[in-house]
Design a protein around this nucleic acid. Sequence first.
DNA 1: CATTCAACCGGACCAGCGGTCCGGTTGGGC
DNA 2: GCCCAACCGGACCGCTGGTCCGGTTGAATG
Lengths: 188, 188
Amino acid sequence: MAERADAVRNRRAVLEAAQRLLTERGGAHISLDAVAAEAGVGKGTVFRRFGSRAGLIRELLEERSLALREAVTDGPAPLGPGAAPRERLMAFLAELAGIGEQNAALLSAHEQACADHKHEDPSYRFWAQHLAEVISAERPDLDADFLGHALLAAFDADLIRHMNSRGPGEFVIALQAMAAALLDSPGK
Amino acid sequence: MAERADAVRNRRAVLEAAQRLLTERGGAHISLDAVAAEAGVGKGTVFRRFGSRAGLIRELLEERSLALREAVTDGPAPLGPGAAPRERLMAFLAELAGIGEQNAALLSAHEQACADHKHEDPSYRFWAQHLAEVISAERPDLDADFLGHALLAAFDADLIRHMNSRGPGEFVIALQAMAAALLDSPGK
DNA sequence: CATTCAACCGGACCAGCGGTCCGGTTGGGC
DNA sequence: GCCCAACCGGACCGCTGGTCCGGTTGAATG
């Protein structure tokens, strides 16, 4: 037996409650007491399901980006393996930026909760590795590993907000322009 | 009267104690109780001097980077106003990276304490503006403002640690290579 | 040097947090 | 219908950032 019915029900309730608090209230001050209360559940339940604050945020983020992950590993062009590396990179950045723009609060919470442990986060690992692969495929002479991390570092909640204040979509545009400049830079 | 003698003494004691805790102990778990105790001072004193945890970290960081700031505004080449923009950019990145490598714990603490308020931090504002100016001087066609923030975003404590694990100085090299690629990218 | 008082100090205190624990409850296989 | 492992709630703990106030001290003044 994998998981009892009430356990499943509570897990979903907690995830939805957290999402609700995160989007309705502005900041990322989401306390686990509040999440438990909003979910109509005891605090112990939250911790049994998710282990810790970081675990909850992580799972929330993973849920949000699951579709993207699948599209990348075995979806159609331009995200999937069929497309050219450059197209995959641009499409991936656009898609991830879309998630970022619409989940700024979640990103903030993630930065705060998982600070100094990004590399253990499966979502982050996947993103970084995908970026590195696709950059390396297009430009084997560049430091693809570093550039992947650097591009992800640009998904800073504060920076996204700053760019969004210029207008919707400005973040994606600037990010893609930067990636294009890197890919088009003259080789050594 | 600006500040009483004992006030000045305590301010320095607190700053030094914080620095000591930050470098001696690994993590950024530096609690203000601990800082006060290490400084041989009451907790109230810490808060009266620095307002909050963020204020303390901020001032610490500012102290660390004061020399760099002065060198940039009116020092000699390659940092100062006399040098060519490209040289200034590279030298500035190298210098800042040096600070970053040697103060990883401080950077972590800063990220954690000042998250979502970077733009209010005077040090950060100065850095971002300087980067934007110098990038814009070399490549007016690029989005210098965004690129400045993006370059600073790469000063992620986790990323620095990751690069340092390859070997000393690897972070600077990769960072400068990225900046060079951006500056050398073909115009539109 | 004595007086005076605003600036300063220490640490008790508070509210809220992440995380633990355990006595009671319940789902579901037999 | 029985039974027990899985699950639940919420009281509880230790710690943290931040506040407050009665007592102390530096230094300007005469």
